[in-house]
Every structure is written in C-alpha cells, then in structure tokens.
C-alpha cells in the first residue's frame, strides 16, 4: 500500500462544485510519487479539475488534497506552483521573445539556465531571440515546457498537452517527457487518449462522473497508486 507520505498527491473525498455543477463528486485516490501518472476519462469527467487541484488553480468545495503528506490548503500557493509546474492544453506563449518568456518564469536565471531548460524540452539551437508568438504549435508547446522547467519544478502537470499538436510533434513530445522522467521529474498527464497514456504512463487513473473508477498499472513493477 502506498502510504500518504510516499504518495505524490492524495485526494480524499474531493468535491468541486462550480455554478451548481459538480466537476468532481467524491474523488478519492493516491498518485505515486514517481514516474508518469496518466489521468484518463471521457470529456467532462473531471480530469482537468483533478490536475488543477494539484497546483491550487482550483480548490475543493469539500474534501482534502495533499501533496507529499501536506494538505495543499496549508502550503504557500506560489511556492507550490513553482514546485508543481503546469503545461496547458493550448500553448500559451507570452508576447516577446523566447528569452522574455523564460525570464518571466525565472527572473533571476541566466543564459545558461535558459539554454539548459530549452535543451531539456528538446529545443536545440538558437531559440532564445525568436518571437515566441510566431512559433509553430509543437515548438510553442515545447517552449512552454522549457518555461516551466526553468523554475526547476519537482512535478510537471500536463493538461492534454499534445491535443493541439500534429502526430509527429505529439510523438516527439512524448519522447521528451519520458526523458525528463528518466532525469527524475514526476509527471501527471491528463489525456483523453488512452493509447497515448498506455505508451507514456506507468499508471493510469480512470476518472468517470467526477469519481475515481480505478487505477491501472501499465508497467508492472513500477510505482503504483491506488483508489482508497
């Protein structure tokens, strides 16, 4: 059994209600502290809400979310978000160059840090002075990953991060993420594409109607989560 301290994120009977509609309805699960945790489910099941709870862009109406044993509600949200980075469904380049984007994320970081973050996001070459808003979808999404990595997070949250990319770019993105995980990054990856999660994830959490319908181990022997 994965105890609370070794779980990455633990959700205890979490309800999220917006405008009278329940996005999550008693979601309970523990995610492993390492590897790639996939989160799958039909559209509207509450997958993205689970992800947004992890970095406190959303808070539970009731129930509790904890990260490495600490209640997320007790953590400094700004520090938590630097520890738990997030890449969104659509690339979100800010106006300016790639360097400007990385500087927004890490104002004190230097050129070497920027270049290292770009390399980790598989953007080799001279990218720093390019206009971030003129990048292709795949390039912009990698730039967003680099922008998140420059804050040196422990966990990376991916919300349908390849849905705006073509197949080749998506495959390359999957490879990049696997390499980041090999370097020690923990990833929680929300996707409607179960085949993709079976390629990249160690465990897959199934979300249905705002509840956890089960956690499947994709790679036997890897760290597993559980439904409590």
């Amino acid at each position: 059994m994965t105890d609370t301290l070794t779980a990455g994120f633990a959700f205890h009977d979490v309800v999220v209600e917006r405008e009278g509609v329940r996005a999550l309805d008693g979601f309970t699960a523990r995610f492993p502290a390492r590897g790639v945790t996939g989160v799958s489910g039909p559209s509207g099941a509450g997958k993205s809400t689970v992800l947004r709870l992890c970095n406190r862009l959303e808070v539970p109406t009731s129930g509790r979310v904890s990260f490495r044993g600490d209640d997320v509600a007790d953590l400094d949200p700004l520090r938590l978000r630097r520890q738990v980075g997030m890449v969104f469904q659509r690339p979100t380049p800010f106006p300016g160059t790639v360097a400007d984007n990385l500087r927004i994320a890490a104002p004190d970081a230097g050129q070497e840090d920027f270049e290292r973050a770009l390399r980790r996001a598989a953007l080799e070459g001279d990218w720093l002075e390019r206009d971030a808003t003129a990048l292709s979808g795949g390039e912009a999404q990698r730039m967003c990953v680099a922008r998140t990595l420059v804050t040196e997070p422990d966990v990376l949250l991916l919300d349908e991060a390849t849905s705006a990319l073509d197949e080749a770019a998506a495959t390359a993105f999957e490879q990049t993420v696997r390499e980041l995980v090999r370097d020690g990054l923990t990833v929680v990856w929300v996707s409607h594409d179960l085949h993709q999660l079976q390629r990249v994830a160690d465990v897959v959490v199934r979300v249905e109607d705002g509840r956890c319908a089960g956690i499947d181990s994709v790679r036997p022997g890897e760290a597993t989560g559980e439904v409590v």
Partner: peptide, 13 residues
C-alpha cells in the same frame, strides 16, 4: 484566462 493562469502556474502572484 489561459494566459493569465499560465502566469499564475509559473508561481507569479
């Protein structure tokens, strides 16, 4: 909103 939340997710106040 996407852009604003991307900024918040980077740890900006």
């Amino acid at each position: 909103r996407d852009e604003v939340e991307a900024r918040l997710a980077l740890g900006q106040s």
